[in-house]
Design a protein around this nucleic acid. Structure first.
Length: 658
DNA sequence: CGGATCCCGGTTTTT
DNA sequence: CCGGGATCCG
């Protein structure tokens, strides 16, 4: 067997062409890109303007490193999504005609997660710990709030979503609760004491039950490096070359992680664009990118300023938009694509007229030979496209929507996964609570009883099953639940089989709980198909939490030519021949939430910059002048301040009447 | 425990 | 006006 294996390896090598320098780096890259690609040692900061070939640079650098003899496993590629890293790796692999699956790539969260699975026992984590997503956090907070007996009327105590946000900010922005309350929620300042209590409770509870939220992955990952010098040494020596993409969207914690990880060589290349920082709500700070040279003394700074994406008329507009930013770091984008249509600002009557106009323009461009998948409609918030979606269906325009869609957070998905989650981590109170509430005749009280048992040191799944079976006879549902869980606990079963078993059990419950049962059942079947490729339950559950499907497309695996609909956040890093931005109206974009905060408004401006810089050739900005709202009546919309009062030479303005 | 009722707020963006 | 959450009551 062993011989056979080495034989295959030999054969593989024979097929691979000798390592001739197939790539002419000087020819294929501009001077700035070339410099970034071929600088191997020391800290490098690449300021990469929109469309300046940032991904290309990273891909070529990957290829360059490997070609110059760096083993792929010594490279760590940190990106914003796993998809991004996979794409870069496959492009680099294609360039040098060599598989690169040994390169470790992914998000900060997934990399930290990997270490914690492996070394987490040093911090007291068992290998089966559970990762909490946003709605799990909410559920947990609700559970913890109860015994605190918080007496507060509506509006006097923050909602659980707000609390989760607050607690996240404490960690990601490194600010005390008091400051955050004073800054953002002065109305809750009287509750400071209670919130502190709840925070302590929340932290302790997570520890006791082997639960980690998104922030904990980073915090604990960092702690692993800080408190265990041997690990820090090992990992730092292993990852001799670190590349960080989208550095403008990292936060303080992530920056510190990079610094720790690079401590014994300082070979870090950070790539980003301060003008495209759009994740401050997650603790990202675009000043991070400015601080990089201070964190890594001796940093070489390289600017990529030639834009390869857009035409000059589009750049004229985007440059104007970002020039109005309060803080900007000089960077001047230019292009060689001089010719192209001017961007248009189109004002329609109603929202539906806006939708129809998009449909008409899409049809027109199609006639001119632009493929549907080369066009995208972008918007500030996911719900902004509802009307358009209806109109597209009517016109039979196929489309796919990205962002906003929280497949994983819908109740039926959470319900079904809970069966598997308690098998993977029997101490997971959130999933136990969910499951118990599904049983007729079981409510808060019964559920609480089991939840208190979870704290016991030696609590295992069998103890849970014993408890379920010991409940009073009338609660037949608990017995059949126990039966199912016992079945699921069979280690030889594949995750998909486990999920199917759970689905059989859950189907009748689904029927009684939801009117739209057929649709939800189909969702669940889709979920089962996604899971087919997994061999390990733990991996399945973690992947679903760390990289949830971003669109129904990921779930249904549809193919073909379709129009892209996307939130601007989900459009980051992408580009299309034609881009439509809808709802460019005050209150929608910029969002009314940021209306009275200058920093937030600046971020909205950067969002508009990101949106407009996605366009290669055609750019249409639309807004409806009138909106009608059932309970507010007719309201009039102002055009978004970011495109207001621009000269005609930059933006063609038109009023479109039906 | 769970159904009925009342009251408030009003869809940001995502790992 | 509709839905979620809290509260009340059988």
């Amino acid at each position: 067997m062993k011989n056979l294996k080495s034989l295959t390896t030999l054969e593989d090598q024979a097929v691979t062409p000798p390592l001739a320098p197939a790539i002419d780096y000087r020819r294929e890259l501009n001077p700035a890109q070339y410099e970034a690609v071929t600088t191997r040692e020391g800290p490098v900061l690449v300021i990469a303007g929109a469309g300046s070939g940032k991904t290309r640079t990273l891909v070529y650098r990957l290829a360059y490193l490997v070609e110059s003899g760096v083993p792929p496993w010594a490279i760590l590629l940190l990106t914003f999504t796993r998809k991004a890293s996979q794409e870069m790796l496959s492009r680099a692999a294609y360039l040098i005609d060599r598989q690169l699956h040994e390169v470790v790539g992914g998000t900060f969260h997934s990399v930290c997660h990997r270490w914690l699975r492996r070394y987490g026992n040093r911090l007291g984590y068992e290998s089966g710990f559970t990762i909490l997503d946003r709605s799990d956090q909410g559920d947990l907070l609700r559970l913890l709030r109860e015994p605190l007996k918080i007496k507060a009327g509506p509006g006097q105590f923050p909602r659980k979503e707000t609390i989760a946000e607050l607690f996240g900010a404490i960690v990601n922005k490194n600010l005390p609760l008091e400051t955050l309350l004073a800054q953002n929620y002065p109305q809750f300042e009287p509750q400071t004491g209670l919130l502190h209590q709840l925070y302590q409770l929340y932290q302790r509870h997570k520890r006791e039950h082997q639960l980690l939220d998104y922030d904990d992955l980073l915090v604990e990952g960092k702690r692993l490096l800080e408190e265990h010098p041997d690990l820090r040494q090992t990992l730092s020596e292993r990852y001799r070359y670190i590349m960080v993409d989208e550095y403008q969207d990292t936060n303080r914690l992530q920056a510190e992680l990079v610094r720790l990880l690079a401590f014994c060589h300082n070979n870090v290349m950070a790539v980003g664009d301060d003008s495209q920082s759009i994740y401050s709500f997650r603790g990202a700070n675009f000043r991070n990118i400015i601080d990089f040279p201070r964190l890594f003394p001796g940093t070489q700074i390289i600017k990529l300023e030639e834009n390869y994406r857009s035409t000059q008329p589009i750049l004229d507009l985007t440059n104007t938009i970002i020039a109005q930013a309060r803080e900007k770091y000089t960077k001047c984008l230019f292009t060689r694509k001089k010719e192209g249509p001017k961007p248009h600002l189109l004002r329609t009557g109603s929202e539906n007229e806006q939708s129809q106009l998009v449909c008409n323009l899409v049809a027109e461009l199609q006639e001119q030979g632009v493929a549907l998948h080369q066009m995208a409609v972008l918007f500030r918030a996911a719900f902004h496209s509802f009307d358009l979606e209806i109109e597209l269906l009517r016109h039979q325009v196929p489309f796919m929507k990205f962002g906003g869609f929280k497949f994983m957070e819908s109740a039926h998905i959470k319900d079904l996964l809970s069966y598997l989650r308690v098998v993977a981590n029997p101490r997971d109170p959130i999933s136990w609570n969910r499951l118990l509430q599904l049983v007729p005749g079981v409510g808060k009280k019964t559920s609480q009883k089991l939840l208190t048992l979870l704290k016991q040191e030696d609590f295992t799944l069998p103890s849970a099953l014993a408890w379920l079976n010991a409940q009073k006879g009338s609660k037949q549902g608990l017995k059949s639940l126990a039966e199912l869980l016992a079945q699921l606990n069979e280690p030889t079963l594949s995750p998909a089989t486990q999920l199917n078993l759970a689905l059989t059990h859950y189907e009748p419950i689904l029927k009684t709980r939801f009117d739209d049962y057929p649709k939800r059942f189909r969702d669940l079947e889709h979920l089962v198909t996604i899971t087919a490729r997994y061999r390990q339950l733990g991996n399945l559950l973690n992947d679903l939490t760390l990289e949830p499907p971003t669109s129904l497309a990921d779930v249904t695996q549809e193919r073909g030519d379709y129009l892209n609909l996307s939130t601007i956040h989900s459009a980051k890093g992408l580009e299309w021949e034609a881009v439509f931005i809808i709802w460019a109206a005050e209150g929608r974009f910029p969002s009314s939430y940021s209306q009275d905060n200058e920093e937030d408004l600046e971020e909205e401006r950067r969002l508009m910059y990101v949106a407009t810089t996605r366009a290669r050739h055609y750019l249409f900005i639309l807004f409806p002048a009138v909106s009608y709202n059932r309970y507010l009546g007719t309201t009039y919309n102002e055009v978004s301040r970011f495109v207001q009062d621009l000269p005609d030479r930059i933006l063609t303005k038109m009023r479109i009447d039906p």
